[in-house]
Computed example of a mutant assay.
Amino acid sequence: MSKRTRLAKAPFDQWGGLMEYVGYVEPHEWRENKPFAALLAIEGIERGMSAARFIWHADGGRTFPMFMTDMVDLLKNAPNLCKGTVHTWWMVQKRGKNYGVRLARPEELAEAGHTGGNAESCPACKAYGLSKIPYPWLCLGPEADPSI
């Protein structure tokens, strides 16, 4: 299996949402591409010039596009998908000239200091304030915690 080259920076708009394409509109800021935790709710599907994608939204009016291929991976692997929402760790990836979110991989979470298990004891989850969410025992990983 070949090692993938990680996208170094990703374009975000003025509200903090991921821009799906950079062309005519300049990004508000380019951010380092590292795993981030967020509660995203599915908004719908849209078709662009080159691809169809799912659109997720988060608080503050932020939106996050997702490629269809990555949705299949999410549906197969997200332990906490509930009524169109997913609270987990995400990464940005680029396909062609388009950007989208996907489920963060275990090796990426390990680089971010994510340990799994209880959110109270995971340094990465504590840094995101996830130990203060309504379900602090759920540490957000790509795989379910067998102790729950």
Results as ranks from 00 to 15, higher is better:
residue 49 M to L: 12
residue 49 M to S: 15
residue 50 S to A: 14
residue 54 F to T: 15
residue 55 I to N: 01
residue 55 I to W: 02
residue 55 I to E: 01
residue 56 W to A: 10
residue 56 W to Q: 11
residue 56 W to H: 13
residue 57 H to N: 08
residue 58 A to T: 07
residue 59 D to E: 14
residue 61 G to I: 02
residue 61 G to V: 00
residue 61 G to P: 03
residue 61 G to S: 05
residue 63 T to I: 13
residue 63 T to Y: 11
residue 64 F to M: 09
residue 65 P to G: 05
residue 65 P to N: 11
residue 66 M to Y: 00
residue 67 F to A: 07
residue 67 F to G: 02
residue 68 M to S: 11
residue 68 M to H: 04
residue 71 M to T: 06
residue 72 V to H: 15
residue 73 D to C: 12
residue 73 D to Q: 15
residue 74 L to C: 08
residue 75 L to T: 05
residue 75 L to V: 09
residue 75 L to G: 07
residue 75 L to M: 13
residue 77 N to F: 05
residue 77 N to G: 03
residue 79 P to R: 09
residue 79 P to T: 10
residue 79 P to Q: 09
residue 81 L to H: 13
residue 81 L to E: 04
residue 81 L to A: 13
residue 83 K to S: 07
residue 83 K to G: 06
residue 84 G to M: 15
residue 85 T to D: 02
residue 85 T to L: 04
residue 87 H to C: 07
residue 87 H to K: 10
residue 87 H to I: 05
residue 88 T to L: 12
residue 88 T to V: 15
residue 88 T to D: 01
residue 88 T to N: 15
residue 89 W to N: 12
residue 90 W to Y: 12
residue 90 W to L: 13
residue 92 V to P: 00
residue 93 Q to N: 09
residue 93 Q to E: 05
residue 93 Q to G: 02
residue 93 Q to I: 01
residue 94 K to A: 12
residue 94 K to S: 10
residue 96 G to W: 07
residue 97 K to E: 14
residue 97 K to P: 01
residue 97 K to G: 07
residue 98 N to R: 15
residue 98 N to K: 04
residue 99 Y to D: 02
residue 99 Y to I: 10
residue 99 Y to E: 01
residue 100 G to K: 15
residue 101 V to P: 03
residue 101 V to G: 00
residue 103 L to W: 03
residue 103 L to V: 06
residue 103 L to Q: 06
residue 103 L to E: 05
residue 104 A to I: 00
residue 104 A to S: 13
residue 105 R to N: 06
residue 105 R to Q: 15
residue 106 P to V: 08
residue 106 P to C: 06
residue 110 A to N: 03
residue 112 A to P: 00
residue 112 A to C: 06
residue 112 A to T: 01
residue 112 A to F: 02
residue 113 G to I: 11
residue 113 G to V: 08
residue 113 G to P: 08
residue 113 G to A: 12
residue 113 G to T: 09
residue 114 H to G: 02
residue 114 H to I: 04
residue 115 T to F: 01
residue 116 G to R: 09
residue 117 G to C: 12
residue 117 G to P: 03
residue 117 G to A: 08
residue 118 N to Y: 07
residue 118 N to K: 13
residue 119 A to P: 08
residue 119 A to F: 11
residue 120 E to W: 13
residue 122 C to F: 10
residue 122 C to R: 09
residue 123 P to M: 13
residue 123 P to D: 02
residue 123 P to N: 09
residue 123 P to E: 07
residue 125 C to A: 10
residue 125 C to W: 03
residue 126 K to V: 13
residue 126 K to P: 00
residue 127 A to N: 07
residue 127 A to P: 03
residue 128 Y to E: 15
residue 128 Y to A: 13
residue 128 Y to Q: 12
residue 128 Y to H: 14
